[in-house]
Design a protein around this nucleic acid. Structure first.
Lengths: 147, 147
DNA sequence: TTGAAAATATTGAATATTCAAGAATTGACG
DNA sequence: CGTCAATTCTTGAATATTCAATATTTTCAA
C-alpha cells in the first residue's frame, strides 16, 4: 500500500521531466522537417499566428508563440529583413506595433504547414489516433489548471 | 463528418505546441520554487541523477538531463566551482570523465527534492491524481514511440 | 489639465547556448 | 605492432537569449 517516498523517486518519474523530454523530442523532429525550408520552429509559429491576416501586437505575439519580448523583437527584426512580416504602428494606441504577414510570408507558411502536417501524421501512425487525442486533451486541461 | 484540413488548424491544436506550452508552464513553476535555493532546474536534474552515488560519464549525463555536451560541460564547471560535484578520470577508459556528487551536493539535493515534491503535490491538487498519472503514462509512451 | 503611474516595445550589456574544431584515448584491422 | 577511424570531452568563436534600463504613449486621478 505504502508508496515509496517521492524524494527518492528517479527524475524520470517527475511530470516536469517527462514534459521536457517529450517536448524536446517532438520539437527536434519538427525542427528537422522545417529545416528543409531553413526556418526555426518559432518563426513558423509566428507566421501561423499572423496568417489570420489580422494585425497582432508584439505582446500578443510573444504570448502566443511562447517567447519573451526582447527575444521576439530580435526574431521579428530578422523576419522583417527577410520580408516575411512587416510592422505597422497601431493607429489606436501608438505604443503598440501591429505585425502583419507578407505575401512572401504566406507562401512560406503554406509550405511549412504541410511539413508540420507530415510530422503530425507520422506521430499518428506511430503513436495512434486515440493516444494522440487523449494526450492533447490532457495537456490542454493541464495548461488550463495552471492559470 | 469531414474534418477541417490540418493546414488551417490553429497552432494551439498542434501537439508540438501543446507540449511546448505545458512544458514552459510547468518548468516556470518549478524554476520559481528552486530559485529559493538559487539553483536552475538543470542543476537539480544533474544532482538528482548523480545522487545514486555512482559515477556517470558526461555523455550519459548529457542524455539524462537533456543538455547537449558543451552546455553540460560549462554547467558542470560552475557546479565544480560551487563544490556540488567533482570529476574523476575513468580508470577503465581514460577518454571518459566520471562525475560524482559531493556531500554538499547531497545536502542541497535533498532540499531541492522537497521543493520539487511541493510542486508535484500542487499539481496533484489542481489537476487531479488520475489525470496526472494518465498524462505521465501517455508521455512515457509517446517518448517510447519516438525512438 | 497636468503630472504620476502603467503599458508597450526596443536597446545594449551580460550571460548562456551552440556549432565547429581540437585534443586525448581507444578500438579495430591490415 | 602501427595507423587510421571512432569515441569522448573540452574549447573558442559565433550566435542567441535574457535582464535591466530606456523611450514613448496612454490612463487616470487629483
Amino acid at each position: 500500500m505504502a508508496k515509496p517516498p517521492k524524494e527518492n523517486s528517479p527524475i524520470t518519474e517527475h511530470l516536469a521531466y517527462l514534459l521536457a523530454q517529450a517536448n524536446r523530442e517532438i520539437n527536434r523532429q519538427l525542427e528537422l522537417r522545417l529545416s528543409k525550408e531553413g526556418v526555426p520552429v518559432e518563426q513558423w509559429r509566428i507566421l501561423k499566428v499572423l496568417s489570420d491576416g489580422e494585425g497582432h501586437s508584439m505582446g500578443e505575439l510573444a504570448d502566443a508563440v511562447l517567447l519573451n519580448h526582447p527575444t521576439l523583437t530580435k526574431m521579428i527584426d530578422r523576419m522583417v529583413s527577410d520580408t516575411l512580416v512587416y510592422r505597422v504602428q497601431d493607429p489606436n494606441d501608438r505604443r503598440k506595433v501591429l505585425m502583419f504577414i507578407s505575401d512572401r510570408g504566406k507562401v512560406l507558411c503554406k509550405k511549412l504547414n504541410s511539413l508540420a502536417v507530415d510530422q503530425e501524421e507520422h506521430i499518428l501512425e506511430n503513436y495512434g489516433d486515440k493516444s494522440t487525442s487523449e494526450l492533447k486533451r490532457l495537456l490542454e486541461s493541464l495548461i488550463d489548471s495552471s492559470n
